[in-house]
Design a protein around this nucleic acid. Sequence first.
DNA 1: CCTTGCTTGTGAGCACGTGAACAAGCAGCG
DNA 2: CGCTGCTTGTTCACGTGCTCACAAGCAAGG
Lengths: 231, 231
Amino acid sequence: MADGTKRPARKIPEATVARLPLYLRSLLEVAGDATPTISSERLAELSGVNAAKVRKDLSYLGSYGTRGVGYDVEYLLFQMSRELGLTKDWHVVIAGVGNLGHALANYAGFSDRGFPVAALVDADPRVVGTDINGITIRHIDELDAIAAEHHIDIGIIATPASVAQDVADRLIAAGVSSILNFAPTIVTVPPEVSLRKVDLAVELQILSFYQQRKGTDAHAPVASAVVPPPR
Amino acid sequence: MADGTKRPARKIPEATVARLPLYLRSLLEVAGDATPTISSERLAELSGVNAAKVRKDLSYLGSYGTRGVGYDVEYLLFQMSRELGLTKDWHVVIAGVGNLGHALANYAGFSDRGFPVAALVDADPRVVGTDINGITIRHIDELDAIAAEHHIDIGIIATPASVAQDVADRLIAAGVSSILNFAPTIVTVPPEVSLRKVDLAVELQILSFYQQRKGTDAHAPVASAVVPPPR
DNA sequence: CCTTGCTTGTGAGCACGTGAACAAGCAGCG
DNA sequence: CGCTGCTTGTTCACGTGCTCACAAGCAAGG
């Protein structure tokens, strides 16, 4: 490993970063195939993106393709995994073991892709002490102790919205600097902490918007039924 | 159009549509408060967005504010709900009752926000016939019959990736034209069908990317001896 | 009725992301 | 050894989204 690889010092656009995992997934699908290379066109097809966009995205990682041939699947997989930081496991703690937290704790896709669940925490004394998938749920007050035992990289918030901010603060206090928030509320974090959010109901509402526009004028809303603006 | 209200014929930017549910959520939080109006600044703060962006977004819906005062919360709530198509319930079918599907079926947030779960389907004969939350799981082959009984607006795919495309095709064949895909794979649909996707592992990988860039050399607390200035 | 203070609505400039088009360059073959 | 076909990497033009800044406009108060 005596520095044969290039320095990835370039700043990669956010939109590109969001697509890298898609490429990775597609590459894994063709990893065992007969042909050891893949063209940008085929990779685009598998990932559901434009071919030009694929080439541009990959060029941010470096010139890893061969003109006239394509990209070597194995080599590209390696480079992309390295860029995404997937050469090591990232330990996850799930806060809140309700319906969603329970499902996430059982979800095999996390460990499979390098994100093993290291700990589960909750505030409800009725679930603290019980096991999920071989992991004992501990009380959220023990977060600092847990962080001292295992190194925790990522915190997942699967609590009710009302306590999401408090849980986020506790996670940060315990040294977690990447958070994925499933609670339907805004959580504010200091700038050095990465935060992403997923709101399931919001996704449905967006679908609802476009669905309504589709079936427009089928039974158009009567304008007179609309309440007048307040004074 | 001779009526008083404006036709919502304007094309609302996609980025704006994605933010409307956030505004809606914030408005619901302040709906009972003493002051019946809200300024763009406060709404921006609650939603985690820029104030100018809020005003521009809301202006796409129409001129529903009063200069010098702000927006009437109730009236804005009504208009936004109408625009998002939330004046009616949207019936949801969940395909795949594994870990995730099970959690989604139990998730109260869907019904609460106008997306009642009308049906559950799965292919595994061991779960078909069992109940979740008062809803009996039926076999996926019965989709057409189910669609004939209840009107199904939105389909949620919570199956393994290997069967996601097949399930999507069946949903579309049964008349569903909005789909939310949780399976970690690309699903292709005809242009008249709306599709959104949520991949939990992808979110973690994006966090992983930024986390790695943060601590370029440091995943060990060696730095604690040096005490790097937190920025 | 006029002035003052405050907040909306919008126009303009800028940054970012996208898509097409094309030159650069490699491999294979005659 | 040169030619041909194919695919990458990059440049350019365009559209979309974001931010700033400010005029327009309403309410309240004298």
